[in-house]
């Protein structure tokens, strides 16, 4: 039984002028029939969790408006590139995704999900610009993290060869091929992100973009599109995570009894200077 709980969409605006434009990645309005939500909690209810999983459908095909069907049921119409549908609660097992433009089927794809998992199912271009659209399932790691940390996962779903993703000028995600992703835990901040071919500094495939990373959350970034048609873009999806860990302490009292001092061990002679 298909249960469209809500729709989440985080988009960036397409470039208004050719060439490198510094853009801020922000949430945008949706074009989907079922409405728009803000940052979405992704876990199904406890009762459902035992036999269901959670999926988001990610529309990563540039210049294409599609309808999305799961197991024959329409879940989204008129979905443009960067659209996100979900979370959808599905029974664990195998399902079929159909991507259509009107009455034309672009692809039908089966995917399998396990109970109590969360996945992003992305329709995107393969590495080769002339290849047919593909579907890749990316598992969402929804493990708890400290509230002041952010998990960033960058996925390559664009029609380009393997790439390096640079953050504030430094390669933090190296040699990512189409269909692959890399994860990193970072402090929350707004970072300048760009993408270049692996091992190179030019040409810039995408960016530089300002990426605001949200703490206590999984921040997913999907690179999509194809350079020659000037459709390179990035989809940002933010999934709140459970928090773990405690705040930093005010004091660390790690000695009782004074034995070390008695033994003359406790002075290292290295005083701290402000």
């Amino acid at each position: 039984m298909l249960n469209a709980v809500s729709i989440a969409k985080r988009t960036i605006s397409p470039p208004t002028s050719p060439g490198r434009v510094r853009r801020r990645l922000v949430a945008g309005a949706g074009c989907l029939a079922l409405g728009v939500a803000a940052v979405v909690a992704s876990a199904p209810t406890t009762a459902q969790a035992a036999v269901t999983g959670s999926v988001y459908l990610v529309q990563g095909l540039p210049s294409t408006t599609v309808d999305l069907l799961v197991d024959g049921t329409t879940v989204a119409t008129g979905s443009k590139a960067t659209g996100i549908v979900g979370p959808l609660t599905l029974a664990s097992g195998t399902h079929t995704l159909s991507v259509r433009t009107g009455s034309t089927t672009l692809l039908d794809s089966t995917f399998t999900i396990a109970a109590s998992t969360s996945s992003d199912i992305v329709v995107h271009r393969p590495a080769s610009p002339s290849g047919a659209p593909v579907v890749t399932v990316f598992a969402n790691d929804l493990s708890a993290i400290p509230a002041d940390k952010a998990l960033v996962v960058v996925a390559h779903t664009a029609a380009v060869p393997p790439a390096d993703i640079r953050v504030n000028g430094k390669v933090l995600f190296a040699n990512v091929a189409n269909g692959e992703s890399l994860s990193l835990v970072v402090p929350p901040a707004t970072y300048k992100v760009d993408i270049v071919p692996t091992g190179a500094t030019t040409p810039m495939i995408l960016g530089p973009l300002d990426l605001t990373v949200t703490a206590g959350a999984l921040n997913r970034v999907f690179a999509i599109g194809e350079p020659k048609s000037n459709t390179m873009n990035a989809i940002v999806q933010v999934l709140k995570l459970p928090t773990t860990g405690t705040a930093s302490p005010t004091t660390v009292n790690t000695g009782t009894g004074g034995l070390a001092a008695q033994l003359g061990l406790a002075h290292t002679g290295l005083a701290w200077r402000p």
């Binding site: 039908d108 794809s109 995917f111 399932v137 990316f138 996925a155 190296a174 040699n175 992703s181």
Partner: peptide, 15 residues
């Protein structure tokens, strides 16, 4: 349409 083909599985890059 042709029979549905299985979706690809996203993997971590080697690094």
């Amino acid at each position: 349409s042709p029979l549905p083909s299985p979706a690809r599985v996203g993997t971590a890059a080697p690094g």
